[in-house]
């Protein structure tokens, strides 16, 4: 049962992900944003399969909710109805294709030749309590550094978005 769900959700994630960047039926950015929502929701399903319930909820609330709404705001405020047709770049397509193929080749060969093993039992059983304990004991230093990082990001966003700082 879990296996079927895993393959179903992974396929959906991949299909929706492709539709975000290369949709043959529509070039409307709003459609792309909506497919991004679908990608994120399918990924949240994968997290549920891994018993990471908290992560799944955060994924839906923060990414599918807040971030995409922000995307849609920007798209609609700028009033972009149709993405500009770009000239097809032959050289870019070839180099990109070669890069993609070689990475895919390496990955497929790696996975088929190595013994993946039994897999680990998840240390976190998805509850917020376990996550909180891990964050404030084992991972407290990276957690605090993330605080500095958020301060940096805040200062940076204000600086770059404000026209004239006094």
């Amino acid at each position: 049962m879990t296996d079927i769900l895993f393959y179903l959700l992974s396929t959906l994630t991949l299909v929706f992900g492709v539709l975000v960047v290369a949709n043959p039926f529509s070039r409307n950015p709003v459609t792309s944003a909506m497919f991004l929502v679908m990608t994120i929701v399918s990924m949240a399903g994968l997290f549920v399969l891994l018993h990471a319930f908290f992560l799944a909820v955060i994924q839906v609330m923060v990414y599918a909710g807040a971030v995409i709404v922000l995307f849609l705001f920007v798209i609609m405020l700028l009033d972009i109805n149709q993405e500009e047709k770009r000239r097809f770049q032959f050289f870019g397509a070839i180099t990109g294709g070669i890069g993609l193929l070689s990475i895919a080749l390496v990955m497929v060969k790696t996975i088929t030749t190595s013994n993946v093993g039994a897999g680990l039992t998840p240390e976190l059983e998805g509850s917020t309590r376990a996550l909180g304990t891990a964050l404030f004991t084992q991972y407290v230093l990276p957690f605090e550094i993330m605080g500095i990082l958020l301060l940096i990001a805040m200062v940076g966003v204000i600086l770059l978005s404000k026209k004239e700082l006094k």
Binding site: P142, I145, M146, I152, A153, G156
Partner: peptide
């Protein structure tokens, strides 16, 4: 590796700005 990633992001994100 967590420290590698977090400290590297502090450096890189600051350099974006």
């Amino acid at each position: 590796f967590v420290m590698v990633f977090v400290s590297l992001e502090v450096v890189t994100i600051t350099f974006y700005i």
